[in-house]
């Protein structure tokens, strides 16, 4: 059966890549910033690269904050990518203390100044738990990252992978219907597509 995945367009990030990856994998894509259209999807992806504050402002302006909070709490399968991961949490120290969607508790913090920022390039994802999202993906595989902040979740039990960049940080989480990855599966070649395929199967 054809799966319908909604890609949330809030004016940030490489939306075309995510949509095209989904299409290549056989999903039907609703790329929209309209809550009504997105509500027809069987799963949601919140992509994004860019500033946290701008991200929240755009979500609020488009009426997507309420929509996401309601849909996610109702149990729709969700995948947050990069900024879409960080926005799920309570707040970020980027651009002052800015509140996020507050669906999960935790904070996005900046990498230490001792290393090159942004953390840009291919890094290894070390699995902490078995998870459907990682099905048929080898442990410690390389995925593509571009970010200067990472999330410190309060509930360590949701952590499904970590990555080492000067320090060990959380690169993926899962809680019930919510998945989020700090890397870009849509830019991580074959294994990235595999991960997106796994998400489609979950939906």
């Amino acid at each position: 059966m054809e799966k319908v995945i909604g890609v949330v367009d809030y004016g940030l990030g490489n939306l075309r890549s995510v949509s095209k990856a989904l299409e290549v994998l056989g999903a039907k894509v609703i790329l929209s910033s309209d809550a009504k259209k997105l509500s027809e999807a069987g799963g949601l992806i919140l992509p994004g690269v860019g500033a946290f504050k701008r991200g929240m402002e755009n979500l609020e302006k488009l009426g997507l904050k309420d929509f996401l909070q309601k849909s996610l709490n109702r149990g729709i399968p969700f995948l947050g990518i990069c900024l879409g991961f960080q926005l799920l949490f309570t707040e970020s120290e980027e651009g002052g203390e800015v509140k996020g969607l507050e669906i999960l508790r935790g904070k996005a913090v900046r990498f230490s100044k001792k290393i090159k920022i942004p953390h840009m390039g291919w890094n290894q994802v070390e699995f902490k738990k078995d998870n459907n999202l990682f099905k048929e993906i080898p442990d410690k595989s390389f995925f593509y990252f571009v970010h200067s902040y990472y999330v410190e979740p309060e509930d360590k039990d949701i952590v499904i992978s970590t990555t080492d960049y000067g320090e060990e940080f959380v690169s993926a989480i899962n809680k019930d219907n919510l998945w989020a990855v700090q890397f870009h599966p849509e830019k991580s070649s074959e294994l990235g597509l595999k991960l997106i395929k796994n998400f489609i199967s979950i939906c």
Binding site: N14, R16, K20, Y144, V146, E186, K187, S188, G192
Partner: peptide, 11 residues
């Protein structure tokens, strides 16, 4: 760019 983005999934 449009065409590449549809078929190539690296940055």
């Amino acid at each position: 760019v449009r065409e590449t983005c549809e078929q190539v999934f690296i940055p």
